[in-house]
Amino acid sequence: MIAGGTSTTTLTCPKCAFLLHPEALAPRGRTGLVDCPACRSVLHVALFPAFSAPPERVSTSSGERAVEGESVCFFHPEKRADITCDRCGRFLCALCDVPFAGRHICPACLDASKMPELNNQRVDWDKLAATVGWLPILLSPMCFPFFFLAFATGPGAIALALLKWRGEGSLVHGRRRWLSIFGIVGGLLQIGGLGFMAWAIFNSSTRG
């Protein structure tokens, strides 16, 4: 059974949910201008073809039984295969077919570890190394106790930069290894600062 039909998309005011008529939009470049008659909000609206297009046909079938000679679903050998997975090529029945971003994916491929576009979080190791390397240095003049964090943050920044040298970076900026190098420099400065302080204390105690 296939579900689908004429477009039923409506345009409503985002503030008061009053139903607006797209025909009432006054053209202004690529957008249309309309005042909501209920709450008097001024709305700039940009409509796209999907607004007036009928909804995509979605199969609500669980799959038909396969007869001899027909291709069968990889996950349900008793059901007829209707489509192949766009990622791995496995045969899929209507039940196993998962429409995703205009493609058809099998349940096994629908996994964040296999499809990067399903990842919704990532650690930016380059930025973290730079932050750990330099934040205590910048905060120390304002609050001296921060300087003692250098026992952990100094070596920590260097370790982060080196251990995650081959790790993934920002999704949009990519790897920014100069930030990791910047973090290593900050870490070395922190260790150097601690060493200098230790030398100064030792020096003053031996003189005294």
Partner: peptide, 16 residues
């Protein structure tokens, strides 16, 4: 991250 696929865009509305 949050993603919205361009295929699904029906309209963009800006309310002053």
């Amino acid at each position: 991250y949050r993603r919205w696929y361009l295929r699904d865009f029906q309209c963009l509305i800006a309310r002053r």
